[in-house]
């Protein structure tokens, strides 16, 4: 179980990375390596060139800017999980990260790597979607901004041109009076979730002012439940409201794989959505 041959590049700057991307055929970016390295070892990925981002300057860090938190693409999951700023301002992200793999993989895995890998079950993709993340993508023409909602264009395929790279992710901090919750069902601790639900509720008085519901693991990409969100806004947080919103999951398109058929994913979606809503509402009320 050893990788096939490839050429290795370890650039130090974003410009060098972009030059390499522009000049090399069949090149892959190596971020934390927690998904790509197994694929190399198992010979299911065959890049001719590996461009290692681990020594590139300017791709790490967590900063609060205006109403958003900006996280460099190569920031390790463990650093995000333990960041005081994240715990205080984006507890949903910290909560989700506790489900991502294990200590050893989070020590190495990066937020940008996870987003670009776009595994249908990836917790970070679901959270970024729930929080309306904005992605900073850099190419030879400069930096462009991209909504997370436009990022997945197919199964594990991000909307990145071959010569582009993700450099940072910006997550808007929700207003005061909000509550979030991340629930998932995985076979074992740290496994990819069969289904996950990321929920954000903003309460104003006794009414729901804003609701964001995202499911991971049900389809090729994250699924934002816009209809259910609309049902919730304006209503009072209650068992009946949440139940009705969760019931919307009965109609979603879900995938089947050897681990779980579509019907099971739909059932889980409803259960996890309801549970996440209840938790988020309780947290918002505190």
């Amino acid at each position: 179980m050893k990788p096939a041959p490839f050429a290795y590049h370890d650039p130090r700057s974003i410009e060098e990375v972009l030059d390499l991307l522009a000049s090399l055929d069949n090149a892959r970016l190596l971020a934390g390596g927690q998904s790509l390295m197994p694929m190399l070892n198992m010979r299911v990925a065959f890049p001719d060139h590996l461009i290692d981002l681990n020594r590139v300057e300017g791709l790490t860090g967590i900063m609060e800017e205006g109403g958003s938190i900006r996280i460099g693409a190569m920031t390790r999951q463990r650093d995000i999980e333990e960041s005081e700023v994240i715990r205080a301002r984006l507890p949903l992200l910290a909560e989700a990260l506790s489900h991502v793999g294990h200590r050893q993989t989070r020590n190495r895995g990066t937020i940008g790597g996870s987003l670009c890998n776009l595994d249908p079950s990836a917790e970070l993709v679901a959270v970024a979607t729930a929080l309306d993340a904005v992605l900073e993508v850099q190419g030879s023409a400069g930096i462009r901004e991209l909504s997370i909602h436009d990022f997945p264009v197919g199964f594990m395929t991000p909307a990145l041109a071959p010569e582009e790279m993700l450099t940072a992710i910006r997550l808007p901090v929700p207003p005061a009076g909000h509550g979030t919750a991340f629930t998932e069902f995985a076979r074992r601790h740290g496994d990819y979730a069969i289904v996950s639900a990321a929920v954000l509720l903003v309460l104003e008085g006794s009414r729901i002012a804003r609701a964001s519901l995202t499911l991971g693991g049900v389809g090729a990409g994250p699924l934002r439940l816009r209809t259910a969100e609309a049902m919730l806004v304006g209503g009072a947080p209650s068992e009946a409201t949440f139940g009705a919103a969760a019931a919307e999951c009965a109609g979603i398109e879900a995938m089947s794989d050897p681990q779980a058929p579509a019907w099971y994913r739909r059932r889980l979606s409803a259960v996890l959505t309801r549970r996440a809503l209840e938790t988020a509402a309780a947290r918002a009320a505190v």
Binding site: R187, I194, S256, A262, W263, R267
Partner: peptide
């Protein structure tokens, strides 16, 4: 016994519906 197996036993109709 997987969770899928058990939910199918708990609610045979759920699993009987189109996958």
């Amino acid at each position: 016994l997987s969770p899928v197996d058990l939910l199918a036993l708990i609610d045979p109709q759920a699993s009987g519906s189109a996958a």
